[in-house]
């Protein structure tokens, strides 16, 4: 190799479209599969979570009002940007997790394809779940799914990129904004994914990504009164009861998922029924 010294990346948080360090000044060490130092990502604090929720709440109305076509194009744009940076993501996954290059490539490919799949759902989900209800009277009555609000999520430890996309994409397809906690052991692809988001026309605050400890942040997410829903797919099932219990303070909708399907989008949407009289 040459004598050139690498320019290494500082991994920070992604809040409101910017890359701040944690306000707490705390970091933790990420090592590769061989135990060698890779990076010092942020150990996000409760204040970082609050800041992210404020950003997500501010962005939510605008994102929910964006047309389904527009939302679909933005999700597709994320896929385009990710496709263009495949090599970087493959390298990061290999270096952190120690998997083979072929396996890392498979994960990145699946991630791009998953984003494309979800991009197509934005303008179809309401025809799947909406209804024109034949009420027994002279009323026009319809039910449509609409966004729930600000949703928090705990991404699974692995696969660190595909798992992250699997929690983020269905939440934003539904017009929600999201605050997601990335894989603790393998947060690098999440923070690089933030760079993809930052260049994909995703409005600031729609997707916010934290790195840190699940045991610290998940209970804060559960008890936060301005978070409407919580995806705990990435949290060990032993902690689910405690998190569900903490979430009852504002009757948060808390779910855990096993697969990617439209039910995952609808779980974080509310059904609204509208009545109007028919007559002259």
């Amino acid at each position: 190799m040459s004598n050139r010294i690498d320019v290494k990346k500082t991994y920070k948080l992604f809040i409101n479209g910017a890359f701040p360090r944690t306000e707490s000044g705390r970091t933790y060490e990420v090592k590769n599969a061989k135990g060698l130092f890779i990076a010092n990502p942020c150990l996000a604090s409760r204040k970082d979570l609050k800041d992210a929720v404020v950003a997500a709440r501010a962005a939510q109305l605008g994102w929910s009002k964006a047309t389904a076509y527009n939302k679909g194009q933005i999700l597709y744009r994320i896929a385009e940007m990710l496709e263009g940076r495949r090599a970087q993501f493959v390298d990061e996954i290999v270096s952190v997790t120690g998997v083979t290059k072929a396996k890392a490539e498979k994960e990145v490919t699946a991630s791009v394809d998953r984003l494309v799949w979800y991009a197509g759902w934005t303008d179809k989900i309401s025809s799947l779940s909406g209804a024109l209800n034949p009420v027994a009277g002279p009323y026009y009555n319809f039910t449509i799914p609409e966004s729930m609000g600000v949703i928090a999520a705990v991404a699974p430890e692995s696969p660190s990129l595909l798992g992250l996309i699997d929690v983020i994409a269905p939440i934003i397809v539904g017009g929600n904004t999201v605050v997601v906690l990335a894989s603790t052991k393998a947060p690098l692809s999440a923070m690089s994914f933030a760079e993809v988001i930052a260049t994909s026309d995703v409005p600031a605050g729609v997707i916010n990504i934290l790195t840190g400890k699940k045991d610290e942040i998940a209970p804060w997410m559960a008890s936060h009164m301005d978070i409407d829903g919580l995806d705990i797919s990435g949290l060990g099932s032993k902690r689910h009861a405690e998190i569900r219990s903490a979430g009852t303070e504002n009757l948060k909708r808390i779910y855990s998922f096993k697969s990617a399907d439209p039910g995952r989008i609808l779980a974080f949407m509310e059904n609204k029924t509208v009545w109007h009289p028919i007559g002259l």
């Binding site: 209800n133 034949p134 027994a136 009555n141 039910t143 029924t273 009545w275």
Partner: peptide
């Protein structure tokens, strides 16, 4: 932000029409 909107009417119910709340008004329809 409510699960049932009555426009130019109020308190109408029907078995075909989903009823239920957002936020702290409940879970499900």
């Amino acid at each position: 932000r409510a699960g049932v909107i009555w426009a130019n009417t109020f308190n109408k119910f029907d078995p075909t029409s989903p009823f239920g709340g957002y936020k702290e008004s409940g879970w499900g329809r």
